[in-house]
Simulated scan of single mutants.
Amino acid sequence: MSVHGKIRQYIRSNLVTFDAMGTEFTDDDNIFEKGFVNSLFAMQLLTFIETEFNITVDNDDLDIVNFSTVNNMVRLVEKKKKENTTA
């Protein structure tokens, strides 16, 4: 499964909001502004991303913008993977 697919699946499977309300979200929807997630879920999401993709998110990357949309998370993962291969 792609990075994109894994992130979407994680969000959908860990938030009952989507199942209960039949809510859909696009890859560019800000999941914080839409009220889908809170700060606790943000920390769980960070842990998932680091573990699932075998990357370390540095303090400089701990910006809510990097975790606000599926597309931003995919970009972050791809950036960190690229950094790991060039290091």
Rank of each mutant, 00 (worst) to 15 (best):
A20D: 15
L15Q: 10
E50V: 05
D58P: 06
S13P: 00
E24G: 11
N72W: 05
G5C: 09
M43P: 06
N14W: 05
D27P: 03
L15P: 00
V65N: 14
F53H: 08
V65C: 08
M21D: 13
K79I: 13
I49A: 04
N71F: 02
T47F: 07
H4L: 10
Q44H: 03
T26V: 01
N71L: 07
I7C: 03
N30E: 08
E50L: 02
Q9L: 07
T17R: 14
F18Q: 13
L45N: 05
N30T: 01
F18E: 13
H4P: 00
L40H: 04
V77W: 06
D63L: 10
D29I: 01
V74M: 00
V3F: 00
I49E: 08
S2E: 12
V57Q: 10
I64E: 14
G35I: 05
V3L: 11
V3A: 06
Q44N: 00
D60E: 06
T47G: 01
E52H: 06
S13Y: 07
Y10V: 09
M1K: 11
R75M: 12
I64R: 12
M43S: 01
E83R: 08
T69A: 05
S2R: 10
F25W: 06
K34T: 09
L62S: 07
I49N: 01
F18I: 11
V74L: 05
T51L: 00
N84H: 12
N30W: 05
D60H: 10
T85A: 12
F53M: 02
N72K: 15
K79T: 13
F36D: 09
F48T: 07
V65S: 12
Q9H: 15
M73G: 10
T26I: 00
E52T: 02
Q44S: 00
I31D: 11
I64M: 13
D58V: 05
V77R: 01
K80N: 07
R12Q: 13
F53C: 08
E50F: 03
F25I: 03
I64T: 15
S13F: 12
F36T: 03
F32S: 01
H4W: 06
H4M: 10
Q9E: 15
R75F: 13
E78W: 11
